[in-house]
Simulated scan of single mutants.
Amino acid sequence: MRIVGLEAYVVECEIKRHYRWRKGLPISPPKQEICWLRVVTDEGVDGWAVSSRGYIVADLVRRWLKEIAIGQDPLLKEQLWHKVWEVDRIEEFPIYALGLLDIALWDITAKVANLPLYKLLGGARDKILAYASTVTWETVDDYLRYADECLALGYKAIKIHAWGDFEQDGKLAKILRQHVGDEIALMYDGSAGFRYEEALKLGHMLEEANFLWYEEPMREFNIWQYQRLCDDLDIPILVPETADGCHYNAADFVVHGACDLLRTSSHYKGGITGAMRIAHLADSFGMYVEVHGDGLPNLHLCGAIPNTRYYEILVISDPKVEKEEQGELGIDSEGYVHLPQRPGIGWQIDANELAKKSFLSV
């Protein structure tokens, strides 16, 4: 089997529900530009992957990924994964582009094996609990109302993205805990909004509210600061999420005592190959690894990794309607998401229709 073509399709989609994050971060744009990557083989088995920042990714496909992949065996994923990382030394790929080819190659491999990806990767479970991951809402009452709606749908866990004010966020955490009771898992994501002193004070408030984890409170440039925070807090610190370097970088956080839990994902950690390296790294140290973000590749990671606990689902403004729109990626009445059983990652794409909708094809 050989790769005979790489195709990139950029599609512009209107964002139906606008949202914001903490202070200092931009609000959601009016539209999203995504890029679908298609890897074509000489045996009729194609692989797919999708990324945000579509025009940037399409340019990288045109200038680099075609040269790296065409003519190669798509089942030699390790070889091609390292080739991408070699080119990264010169090109400095955006973090979301490093694993795109790898995801498509795993899609091909699982289709050849006639297995859903998570089973090919080892298979840890067929369903997993999901947590509702909030955007930033305006008031405390908004958080309480949406929490009630999420719990009524079956969610057993909620992660909050709040305002980026450590005092107000800490108060929200305590009020939310009182509101939902002790049986619901609560997590907090700081979106890297704090300096050490603020992160420490907020961490103590999250401890008082019995939060399950404290995610990315500071930028991840400085491992020493995270080491201090882990030493000074009891609540588990979950990082690195957006730091470059995949498992190489994650290993530094572990060996320096700068995290308690590790973050992994297909889109920020070098595709499926990089994400699984981080999962195995965490397991070797007896740590949990939590998968960042939703979507089919990340759901398959959740099904393959034994030392993970939840699948993340973003909740914006209407949990019930959003659940219906999510289809198979939504929760059941008990809060679980079930793994798809189609061979590969499971996207069902009509390439001809996609080409018609594309604003750019390369």
Score class of each variant (00 low, 15 high):
D169A: 04
R53Q: 04
G44Q: 03
A282M: 04
P236H: 07
Q225L: 15
V10T: 02
L238W: 01
H179I: 08
L262C: 00
E241Y: 06
E14N: 13
F253G: 04
E86W: 15
G164P: 04
D169W: 01
R22Y: 02
R195Q: 14
D73P: 00
R53V: 05
H247I: 07
G44S: 12
M187A: 10
K111C: 07
L80R: 03
S333Q: 13
V254M: 03
M1I: 11
D148G: 09
D141P: 00
Y268C: 07
A162D: 01
V289C: 13
K323I: 07
V87A: 13
W21R: 06
W347F: 10
A185S: 15
N210P: 13
L299V: 03
I184W: 09
V11G: 11
T242K: 14
Y336Q: 01
L144I: 12
L151V: 13
G123C: 09
V140K: 15
C150I: 00
C230P: 03
I175C: 00
P217Q: 07
P236N: 11
G123M: 02
V362K: 08
S284K: 15
R177V: 06
R195P: 00
W21S: 02
D252E: 15
C259Q: 03
A185N: 14
H82F: 13
Y248D: 12
